[in-house]
């Protein structure tokens, strides 16, 4: 386990118990409650590999792909959900797929993700790196909801995707899918 960079800022969580130190890409160190930290499967895995001997010393888990400003945001989410989420009985895979599609994004999470789309993508990438399944899913669903409001041309422009269909191919697929095109979205959309 690597050691923290010398310039560190600690964010201590009030609850007593084991504290886990992590450092961001910039080397900033955060001290997390064990329950909060273990919501990341990556951190949980490292702790399990190390036999959970990290609590009493100064060792710090390096999260080299997560920038401090995004980690601060994710920490807000982790703390909230660590305190509010109830233990859920494991669902069958099919039921889980149906639930994630059918269930609305909870109000708190909607507010949390009411940010610029680029920030949502950054949170999604960080959640993917940290393996926080629920947050990753929320981000993916939010991005999918944004996609639903865009035209094909807007999506290509937004993500810099090249239209690599031949004109004939595109014409054919356009005919097939003409019925499901939306009205052009209104100007001035936040995303």
């Amino acid at each position: 386990m690597s050691t923290a960079a010398s310039s560190s800022t600690s964010e201590t969580i009030a609850e007593p118990g084991l504290k886990i130190k992590v450092s961001t890409k910039e080397g900033e160190v955060f001290e997390l409650d064990e329950k909060v930290a273990k919501m990341s499967q990556v951190i949980r895995g490292i702790l399990e590999d190390l036999g959970e001997q990290n609590g009493g010393d100064d060792s710090v888990l390096p999260l080299t792909q997560v920038e401090t400003r995004i980690f601060r945001k994710i920490l807000v989410w982790l703390k909230y959900h660590a305190g509010h989420d109830k233990e859920e009985a494991p669902k069958a895979e099919e039921d889980e797929i149906i639930a994630r599609f059918c269930e609305e994004i909870p109000e708190w999470d909607q507010k949390f993700l009411n940010v610029d789309q680029a920030v949502i993508l950054e949170i999604m990438l960080a959640a993917d790196y940290l393996d926080i399944k629920k947050l990753r899913g929320l981000c993916c669903k939010t991005v999918a909801n944004i996609l639903k409001t865009k035209t094909v041309e807007q999506i290509r422009e937004m993500y810099g995707i090249e239209n690599d269909f031949t004109p004939e191919e595109e014409e054919e697929i356009r005919k097939q899918t003409a019925w499901c095109e939306d009205e052009p979205p209104r100007q001035g959309s936040n995303h």
Binding site: L147, K148, V152, I155, R156, I161, E162, N163, D164, F165, E169, E170, I173, R174, Q176, T177, C180, E181, D182
Partner: peptide, 13 residues
């Protein structure tokens, strides 16, 4: 419906 619509974005999509 949206899968059909967005299948026009690119060949990989």
């Amino acid at each position: 419906r949206n899968s059909c619509k967005l299948s026009r974005v690119s060949t990989s999509w």
